[in-house]
């Protein structure tokens, strides 16, 4: 029995980790007043670059960094378009996703069908051997450990650090922040790059640990689910964590339902995460005031320092 529970919880953790990275990164971007719809594209580019790096160098560490940098590089294109050229954020984000899907498929054309054993698990001597808790919390790879720490770090950053305060100020009133003398565009650039880096990590986790191989379009809409998670969490890191694990729990239904012999076609089970996304979005959005009070006030609005 214990083993079944452990296997189930491990599935939830691995399914939640990429969502957690992507959603937390996007949350920081949105907190600065920028809506980046290109998460899906950045995840895919991070995934293919991570996998290519591990294939050609054999180093998992380098691969994680490659994924991070790839996501960051793609997000910089978005930053140039929206901050410098004042292009529509919605259109630029969509362009980013379409471009990312195409570019990742092009780069990864020779990588399809190659297997990788997966990122090494880091065991902590002594602690991993504790029954139940040990295998649950201390038998993961570096990216999962990182995903345990990241929500705390982001929460602390937003709530207690000076930089976090400035970030929120820029997102809630860019004119006021500009008047005080903060460089709105530079802060937003940083926030966009951070979002890109986290999406890249999410992609790297997918292709290096979750299912260690490369397939075209392997993120299967996780970028969009991450975007929905940010709304679901009403822009709070703790709730992003909660939401990501909720979705992890839905994924597990999908994987284990057939093992348990439930006679539902696999396609119906695969629909669950998407239907659940719609359901939570509806539940959270129906209270207009809640969204209004929690959303960064300047989200989606362009800013030009000379106007």
């Amino acid at each position: 029995m214990n083993e079944i529970i452990i296997a189930a919880v491990l599935t939830i953790i691995t399914a939640a980790t990429p969502l957690l990275y992507a959603a937390l990164g996007e949350m920081i971007t949105e907190k600065s007043g920028i809506l980046n719809l290109g998460v899906e594209g950045m995840i895919l580019l991070g995934a293919v670059c991570g996998f290519a790096t591990v294939h050609f160098t054999g180093s998992g560490t380098l691969a994680v960094f490659a994924g991070l940098l790839a996501g960051m590089a793609l997000s910089s294109v978005f930053a140039v378009l929206t901050l410098w050229f004042q292009a529509s954020q919605v259109a630029s984000g969509l362009a980013l996703t379409i471009f990312g899907i195409g570019l990742s498929a092009l780069l990864g054309k020779d990588l399809v069908g190659i297997a990788y054993e997966g990122l090494p698990k880091l065991f902590i001597l002594g602690i991993t051997d504790i029954p139940l808790i040990g295998p649950l919390l201390f038998s993961h790879d570096i990216l999962v450990y990182g995903s345990f720490v990241l929500p705390l770090a982001v929460a602390w950053f937003l709530k207690y650090s000076r930089a976090g305060l400035i970030l929120r100020a820029v997102g809630d009133s860019h004119d006021a922040a500009h008047a005080i003398g903060f460089s709105v565009l530079r802060i937003r650039l940083m926030a966009i790059l951070f979002g890109g880096a986290m999406s890249g990590l999410a992609g790297a986790y997918l292709s290096l640990a979750y299912s260690p191989l490369w397939i075209e379009n392997m993120s299967a809409g996780r970028g969009w689910i991450a975007l929905a998670l940010v709304v679901f969490a009403t822009w709070r890191p703790g709730r992003v964590f909660l939401g990501a694990y909720l979705f992890g729990g839905i994924t597990i239904l999908q994987l284990h339902a057939q093992a348990l012999g439930i006679g539902v076609p696999s396609q119906v089970m695969s629909m669950l995460p998407y239907l659940a996304t719609i359901a939570v979005l509806v539940l959270i959005s129906r209270d207009r005031n809640k969204i209004k009070l929690n959303a960064p006030a300047c989200i989606g609005k362009p800013f030009h320092p000379t106007s």
């Binding site: 294109v77 378009l81 050229f85 259109a91 471009f99 899907i101 195409g102 498929a105």
Partner: peptide
């Protein structure tokens, strides 16, 4: 996939040209 890359680039340049 060349098609997708071309389409994405086209939209990038279009958005940048708006300025």
């Amino acid at each position: 996939a060349v098609t997708g890359v071309f389409q994405g680039l086209l939209l990038f340049f279009l958005l940048a040209c708006d300025v």
